[in-house]
Nucleic acid binder design. Sequence first.
DNA 1: CCAATATCAGGATTACTGATATGT
DNA 2: CACATATCAGTAATCCTGATATTG
Lengths: 175, 175
Amino acid sequence: MSASRALPFDPIQRAAELWEEHFGADSPVAAMASVTSVMRVQQILLARLDAAVAPFELTFARYEALVLLSFSRRGEMPMSKVGERLMIHPTSVTNIVRRLAGQGFVEQVPNPRDGRGTLARITPAGREAMERATKSLHAIDFGLGALEDGQHRDLFRLLHAVRSEQGDFTEGSHG
Amino acid sequence: MSASRALPFDPIQRAAELWEEHFGADSPVAAMASVTSVMRVQQILLARLDAAVAPFELTFARYEALVLLSFSRRGEMPMSKVGERLMIHPTSVTNIVRRLAGQGFVEQVPNPRDGRGTLARITPAGREAMERATKSLHAIDFGLGALEDGQHRDLFRLLHAVRSEQGDFTEGSHG
DNA sequence: CCAATATCAGGATTACTGATATGT
DNA sequence: CACATATCAGTAATCCTGATATTG
């Protein structure tokens, strides 16, 4: 999982202190510390999530695709829409779906309403794997057991502001 | 930058609602929403940071290595210590430092105090590139201009809890 | 003809495992 | 001899930029 032993200090805290010494109190030290923390926590979480779903031959990215399909009405969705919802590149969709298809977790069928398009459809085996992986993720609280529900809401709102500014979506309510 | 157009709703919010419908209010919906948000914001930030330092032929990862070296007393540090501080894999250190060396931003010299070891040492050109990249990053508030200082502290503290639980460091103060 | 929908080829980055040469 | 320090080879995952065939 990358770094091995624990340091006797918080490396991000240390970096922030040095940062302020070198670049002055005017520099966005707090932003730097936040950014670095986001990077590190993402790394930690992804490792935990991937480990949790690995027994079912899934990565977290492939798991997310299965969940998305399972939530849809017919268990199927155009490739383009999968990419839109998961916010991943079209070639990544192709890649992920092909891999899931190779595992028998989804099948790719022509879109009857658009001859150009392809639908990804979850199979019973895919639902089975998804449900088992979900239990595994529930058991570890999605890697975020360190936080309580109120803190999750705080974290979500702070990050929501960043995503909103990026223009991921047009509405601003999350309540 | 992966996804193109904005959705008329927050896809993470939507996912959380569907999640609760499918898996019940007992499931860690708040944790799921937090995790997904961390993933997405990391992606947004990394794209912004990489874009900010790209004019100087750097990635954010290589920039971080330059900053680390420039903060050290002699501008040099053993490879192993670089990996420890940046919390990246030894082979990634080799990779990053070799690339920086190819650009003339660092040089690799034998460690006089350990015949097995190699020191990465920042060059004047490396300091120059680092300082210019820093100005570029300052100008965009490290991609986190959407948050105010108080919010940065909140965000840092929430993520600090996760990092602490992971055992990245042994102390618990950050005040 | 232009736009949209995948898909593919190819390049870049990062991480990990396992093997290796060197030195403590 | 056991251990530590890089480095390398090979594998995997992801994203990106074009190019392409098909269809609307």
